[in-house]
């Protein structure tokens, strides 16, 4: 072994040894304090020492929310039974409410607010949690956004497209931040009539701009048509795209780059 290799090996052993020592020290500290430590840790929506009280108790103060709740998407799983309180009622998301009730309510550590911390939402929406950890994602786990900005868990918000007693308008949730894309155009891209999620993954994905597919498949899902010369030509919209499709995306420079709409070009070229 030459000097460089020896040094590299020693460095590796040193780092490994140091990590081992740290781990042993942590374990030692942990075991050594076993008999004396009184503190506990919990995971939302668990609230230490609290018990379930049921939706009817919540309704005493949160009347507007509780009376509309039976029409919300979350009510699909709800049974008005105290035994189900932790499964499907208010307390399944906000945590057991006895201590919150005893304290007379308030926004504090005695109740969970999923609007601030999405951990509770992720308990059921496992795949969404995973999507938020993919390379391209809305910054929810970073605390820049929260689930409630786009979703209405109680079914009362007029602007959010969920079931419930309120009005719902397509794309309104996205337009709050993405006005540039959702604004009015002289020539619209009719795909927007199906909602932004027809092309974008709303939580997170692996492709830039959170596209469902990063290539022409995204457009061809709708814009394919029967070919006179299958496998050779590629006629789309009365134009021969056979050479274009080989080296570019549909939204590449000089092509249909105004994908959300255009004020002066019907084919969304710019």
């Amino acid at each position: 072994m030459n000097d460089g290799g020896l040094m590299k090996g020693m460095k590796r052993y040193a780092i490994g040894g140091l990590a081992g020592l740290c781990a042993m020290a942590l374990i030692g500290l942990f075991l050594g304090a076993c008999s004396t430590v009184q503190r506990t840790v919990t995971m939302p929506p668990e609230i230490e020492g609290a018990t379930f009280v049921g939706n009817k108790v919540c309704m005493d103060c949160h009347t507007n929310i509780a009376r509309a709740f039976p029409a919300s998407p979350h009510a699909r799983f709800h049974k008005d039974d105290l035994k189900w309180a932790g499964i499907s009622g208010c307390e399944s998301c906000h945590g057991a409410g006895s201590r919150h009730v005893a304290a007379g309510g308030g926004r504090n550590s005695l109740i969970v607010n999923p609007g601030k911390d999405p951990t509770t939402c992720f308990n059921c929406h496992l795949e969404v949690h995973a999507e938020f950890r993919l390379p391209q994602h809305h910054p929810v786990v970073e605390g820049r956004m929260n689930c409630v900005q786009c979703h209405d868990p109680h079914g009362r918000d007029i602007m959010k497209p969920a079931r419930g007693l309120a009005m719902a308008r397509l794309n309104e949730s996205c337009a709050t931040c993405h006005r540039d894309q959702a604004r009015s155009f002289v020539f619209e891209h009719e795909a927007l009539r199906e909602g932004c999620t027809v092309c974008h993954t709303p939580h997170g994905g692996i492709n830039r701009k959170m596209l469902i597919q990063p290539d022409n498949n995204l457009c061809l899902r709708c814009h394919s048509e029967i070919q006179q010369r299958p496998g050779d030509g590629l006629i789309l919209g009365k134009m021969d795209h056979s050479s274009n499709a080989r080296g570019r995306t549909c939204w590449a420079a000089g092509c249909h780059s105004a994908v959300h709409g255009s004020n002066i070009n019907a084919r969304l070229h710019y």
Partner: peptide, 22 residues
Amino acid sequence: TFSYSDSRTVTGVNGHAGTVPY
């Protein structure tokens, strides 16, 4: 949490050399 997703997109013109399935 562990998640595994397996997805496939094919289009009606994937026979063309310039468009490959995803």
